[in-house]
Amino acid sequence: MTRRQRNRTGAALALTTLLTLAGTSLAPAQPTVPPTAPAPIANATVVSNFLAAVQRGDRAQVAALLHPNVRWYQPGSNALSGLKPSREAVFAMSARIHEHTARSYRITDISALSTNGSSVAVRLHFSAASPVMVLDVDNIDVFKVQDGLITEVRVHSANLYHENAFWGN
């Protein structure tokens, strides 16, 4: 080995030692991988969990999945129609539904759950009985989900005439 080669080797070794002591290395940098955050719950899962909680009558789970300022749009021109601007207003509507139907109101079928961004559309079949008539109707409800909470619901009835007659004014 020539004197020049020995000087280069010595200089490289000194530089490597210095960098190692400083916490740096000449080795190629390894890509840093940021810590993985837990995956957000899929919007469809949030809605499925909400509907399952409604079917079980699990008020705590329903409340946990509704944003406190949820906006619930109920169609028609009946006692339930109009905007419900909060979780409390939705629970008040639910209480009125159960009172009117002697707690017979049920979601009997959930199908065709479809997503588009933050929106989840679901075909639901409802049944209930009042002292004077029976409700048997399909709805398509469109839910908006943000950060794992339902922030908006728009109900679309397949038979609004029948719902208006059933719920009355």
Rank of each mutant, 00 (worst) to 15 (best):
P34N: 07
P34L: 04
P34F: 04
P35Y: 03
P35W: 03
T36R: 15
T36E: 15
T36V: 14
T36C: 08
P38G: 03
P38N: 13
A39R: 15
A39S: 15
I41Y: 10
I41R: 15
I41E: 13
I41F: 07
I41N: 00
A42N: 12
A42S: 14
A42H: 15
N43A: 11
A44N: 12
A44K: 07
A44Q: 12
T45E: 11
T45L: 06
V46I: 14
V46W: 00
V46C: 01
V46M: 06
V47W: 06
S48F: 00
N49I: 00
N49R: 15
N49Y: 02
F50E: 12
F50I: 10
L51W: 01
A52W: 00
A52G: 01
A53H: 09
A53K: 09
V54L: 07
V54Y: 09
V54S: 03
V54T: 13
V54C: 12
Q55S: 10
Q55N: 10
R56V: 01
R56L: 08
R56M: 08
G57E: 06
G57F: 05
R59F: 05
R59V: 15
A60P: 13
A60K: 13
Q61E: 14
Q61Y: 02
Q61K: 14
Q61P: 01
V62A: 04
V62S: 05
V62W: 05
V62L: 09
V62C: 11
A63H: 02
A63Q: 12
A64I: 08
A64D: 11
A64V: 11
A64Q: 12
A64L: 09
L65T: 04
L65F: 00
L65I: 05
L65G: 10
L66C: 08
L66V: 13
H67R: 11
H67L: 06
H67G: 04
H67A: 15
H67P: 00
P68D: 07
P68N: 07
P68T: 10
N69I: 06
N69S: 15
N69P: 03
V70L: 09
R71M: 13
W72D: 14
W72F: 05
Y73V: 04
Q74M: 06
P75L: 02
P75S: 06
G76Q: 08
G76P: 01
S77Y: 02
S77L: 10
S77N: 13
N78Y: 03
N78A: 09
N78H: 14
A79R: 12
A79T: 13
A79N: 10
A79I: 04
A79H: 11
L80A: 06
S81K: 03
G82R: 07
L83Y: 10
L83F: 08
L83N: 11
L83M: 08
K84N: 12
K84Y: 01
K84P: 07
K84W: 06
P85R: 09
P85H: 08
P85F: 00
S86Q: 14
S86W: 07
S86C: 07
R87T: 05
R87L: 06
R87Y: 01
R87S: 08
E88F: 00
E88M: 05
A89Q: 11
V90N: 03
F91I: 04
F91K: 05
F91M: 05
F91P: 02
F91G: 06
A92P: 03
A92L: 03
M93H: 11
M93D: 09
M93F: 02
M93T: 13
